[in-house]
Design a protein around this nucleic acid. Sequence first.
DNA 1: TCTATGATCGTA
DNA 2: ACGATCATAGAG
Length: 196
Amino acid sequence: MAEPIPRPLPRSFYERDVCEVAQDLLGCLLVHRVGGRRVGGRIVETEAYGGPGDPGSHADRAPTGRARIMFGRPAIAYVYFTYGMHYCMNAVTGPEGVGSGVLLRAAEPMWGIEEMRARGFPPRLPDHMLMSGPGRLCRALGVGREHNGVELTRGPLTIRAGGAAEQVRSGPRVGLTRDDGRRWRYWIASPSVSRR
DNA sequence: TCTATGATCGTA
DNA sequence: ACGATCATAGAG
């Protein structure tokens, strides 16, 4: 028997300001059930997107196209394809109609390391890098186009309470980074796991 | 350790 | 054309 894992976060968790949700997702558990196997880990880096006045957000424009789902029901996955080869995964937040979500940037692998490696990572890549970065995170979990719009409060792909206060050793760090010299982005990370 | 570059395709 | 990225090659 596998040991029990915490319950999924309720929808009310996501029905708040995107920045609050981004912070509170640190330390929570991202779990995927695939082929009868549990794959996943502890969320250690998030990034809030959307709300009014975020030019970097896909939801900055009209509620149409791929970002339409960001304006919809909270606690739904927004998965998009980028750079012709990577998927990225968000959790939709806030009230319906606002257009916001939390990008899951990195997690610490806890279950299914073998299943992750079977997805063809570089052979030398250390375990802690398998879910480090939004593209690798989705690849490790086997999350792709078919997961766009899925429910995160139940079903195979869930986010669960993880005892953030205990797990995130030094509390969240909030950063301001520059993406390729053009655009400023806020991100929130646990210092307990290095990305390098 | 770092900087530069290619891969590859949906969206605007 | 360009991007909410990643892997690799080459220089220092």
